[in-house]
């Protein structure tokens, strides 16, 4: 997918952001999804001087499986958070394997999601 470097201001919601886990897996998600986490929003804030914001790439100190689930949740959140009350929201809990629940909890805590 194209990653417009210079056009951040014009289409800030529609470009892609890369996440790299501690064991080297790389994930591409829409910026809108990443911004659902306040911590990631801070990392990707264009007004800051962080390398993450400049390169649209964040290294997360979590295992790939945890990063994957974290991003999956953020996608879930950005999709359904503004859904009207009456609409049925699928349960995310059944998508979390208990094996990673502890690690995911700490990641969730850090990324404030």
């Amino acid at each position: 997918m194209e990653e417009p470097q210079g056009e951040k201001s014009s289409q800030p919601q529609d470009d892609w952001v890369r996440f790299i886990s501690s064991d080297g897996y790389s994930f591409l998600v829409k910026r809108k999804v990443a911004l659902a986490s306040p911590t990631l929003r801070g990392m990707l804030d264009v007004s800051s001087n962080f390398a993450e914001a400049a390169m649209n790439t964040c290294r997360l100190e979590e295992r790939g499986i945890v990063v994957e689930k974290l991003l999956e949740y953020l996608a879930y959140k950005s999709t359904f958070e503004s859904a009207p009350k009456k609409e049925d929201i699928p349960d995310f809990m059944e998508r979390i394997a208990p094996e990673i629940a502890l690690e995911l909890l700490m990641a969730a805590d850090y990324y404030d999601s």
Partner: peptide
């Protein structure tokens, strides 16, 4: 996500194997 994880942890608390 944190609250979901906590729910899962509480649910599997007696099953140490499950929690990895």
């Amino acid at each position: 996500l944190a609250s979901l994880c906590i729910k899962i942890i509480s649910h599997y608390i007696d099953d140490v194997e499950a929690l990895g």
